[in-house]
Structure formats: C-alpha cells, structure tokens
C-alpha cells in the first residue's frame, strides 16, 4: 500500500488525536454540567467538580422535580412540541403535495411556489410580526407559539423534492384507478414517504422544543411559559426568586447544582431523540436536498 510512509503514519497519529480532542470538546461542557448537577452543594461551590460527580447526591433533581413551576413549564413544553409539530407537519405535507406537481399539470403552481419562496428572502421583521400576532386573537395563548411558525418553507421544499422524486407511475396508476388527489396523497404518497416524514417530524420537534423567544414575547405570564422560555428566564436571566424556589431549601442546595439539573433536564429530550435523529439526517436530509 501507498499508505505506509513514515510521514503518513505521523500524520495519522496526529490526526487521530486531533479528532479525538475535537470530539471530546463537543461533549465535555454538557458532561460537566451533568456532573455538577449530581454533586453536593459543597463540592459545587468549592469548584472541585470536573467531569465526575463529587459527593454524589440527587438532591438537586429532587428539588427541581418538586418545583411546581418547573414541572408545569416542562408539561407546557411537551404540549407545545406535540401540537406545533402536528400542525406544522400537516400543513406542510398538504402544501408540498400540491407544489410537487409540475406547472403543466397544475397551472398556477409556480406562482404559489414563488409566494412561499419569497418568504425565505424577505420578512417584515420582529416588530410588525409581533404587532400582527397581538392583533389576531392568538396572543397570550399556546397558539401564538404554534401558528405563526407553522409554514416552514425550507421543510416544505425538502418535502416537495421528496414527493417529486417518487415514481410518477404510482400517481398515474392511482389516477387511472379513479383515485382523486386526496386519496393519492393520503393513501399512497404519505404511506410511502414515511421515512422522510419521520425525519422532518423529528427536526420539527427539536425546533419546537428549543424555541424560547416566541414564548417570551407572546405570553404575558411566566406560568404559561414552555420549558425553553422558562429556562431562559430562570437560568439565563437569573430571576431565581420570582419562580418560587423556597428559600429554606436554598440553604441546602446551591443555586448552581439546581440550575445545572434544570439545564440538563432541558437538554434531555434532545439527547433521547438524538440517536434516531442521527440515523436519518445524514442520508435523509443532506442527500435529499443536494440533488444533481
């Protein structure tokens, strides 16, 4: 083999180490927070925790789970994720089916397509969007987190590209057998596109779970915040007293371990779906969108 030269071996060793260090760098911050969340208050305040818990205790998690406000935010986070994903995927799938037709079969298709693509190029900006949301009756409800972001043009394009690459014989056969567009979509296109739909569903779920800003601007009470918005306010902005952690317990458990446990719980759903996500995104999304 050509690979056996000394310089190449030296490079291989160097490269091996470099890749290892880079990979570790990506996971160590999360690992550190996890270790802090499982450490005793004393160890956390003394700054001796690295990547392994010191004085192992679950007290921070007990505190977090016992916190009604945190639990409520967690539940709202799940609600928002499920509702938002269902609404968005439904709307996008239906629209993508129509847009996957050629302009010959469906005159007006190009006009519709440009209508949506233009939204990727230009937007009214934060303030006008905010004012429209406040005026349309969804302000201060969970729908304000679900509806305005429902039409994700990028997902729509991925989906329509996927539909367009399905064999056209399938659709022709269905039409000859007397199926209309609704039947073709729901009985043929959606069932055979399940892998693509599953991928996009996972991505949409991650998007909703991670969204925090809309909660902060469209909801007036912190009691209605989904977890991401809650964490932003509690952990990042440090309004610790507002959220009803009782002060006596604060003596026992340092802010830092409780915060760390909240951050970790915020990341946990992502870590749980990540293996499924990873299996799909390499071939599903990338190869689907870059076609020659």
């Amino acid at each position: 083999m050509q690979y056996r030269s000394t310089s190449y071996t030296v490079f291989q060793i160097f490269n091996f180490v470099l890749i290892g260090v880079l990979s570790l760098l990506c996971i160590l911050p999360l690992l550190h927070i996890f270790a802090v969340s499982l450490s005793s208050r004393d160890a956390a305040t003394a700054n001796i925790v690295n990547f392994w818990p010191v004085g192992f205790t679950l007290a921070a998690y007990e505190q977090t789970i016992g916190n009604q406000n945190f639990l409520r935010a967690l539940m709202i986070g799940f609600q928002r994720t499920i509702l938002g994903t269902v609404v968005s995927m439904g709307i996008i799938t239906m629209a993508a089916y129509s847009l996957s037709k050629s302009n010959l079969k469906f005159r007006g298709r190009n006009m519709y397509a440009w209508f949506f693509v233009f939204m990727m190029l230009f937007n009214g900006g934060l303030i006008p969007t905010y004012l429209v949301v406040t005026k349309t009756g969804i302000y201060d409800s969970i729908w304000a987190l679900v509806i305005p972001s429902a039409v994700n043009v990028w997902n729509m394009i991925l989906m329509l590209n996927f539909f367009r690459n399905l064999p056209s014989e399938l659709e022709d056969a269905a039409l000859i057998d007397g199926a209309g567009h609704f039947t073709t979509l729901f009985r043929i296109f959606i069932p055979i596109s399940m892998p693509a739909i599953a991928t996009m569903t996972l991505f949409t779920m991650v998007f909703h779970w991670n969204s925090w800003f809309d909660g902060i601007i469209y909801l007036t009470s912190m009691e209605d915040y989904p977890l991401a918005s809650f964490l932003h306010t509690v952990v990042v902005k440090e309004n610790f007293n507002e959220v009803g952690v009782d002060l006596e317990n604060l003596q026992e458990i340092s802010n830092r371990t409780v915060k760390s446990s909240q951050i970790f719980i915020g990341a946990l759903p992502i870590l749980l779906v990540y293996p499924f996500l990873q299996r799909y995104f390499v071939k599903g999304i990338v190869l689907g969108s870059v076609k020659e």
Binding site: A95, F116, G124, P148, V151, H181, F182
Partner: peptide, 21 residues
C-alpha cells in the same frame, strides 16, 4: 383539490408572513 390542500399554508403565510411585510 390541489388548491384546497394549499389553503391552510396560504392563509397562515398571508396573515403571519405577508401582513408583517
């Protein structure tokens, strides 16, 4: 049917993306 399938996306985009424009 193709227009109907586009309708929800159109309405939402008109209200929340085009009105702000």
């Amino acid at each position: 049917p193709l227009h109907v399938l586009l309708l929800p996306a159109l309405i939402i985009a008109l209200i929340y993306n085009y009105t702000p424009m």
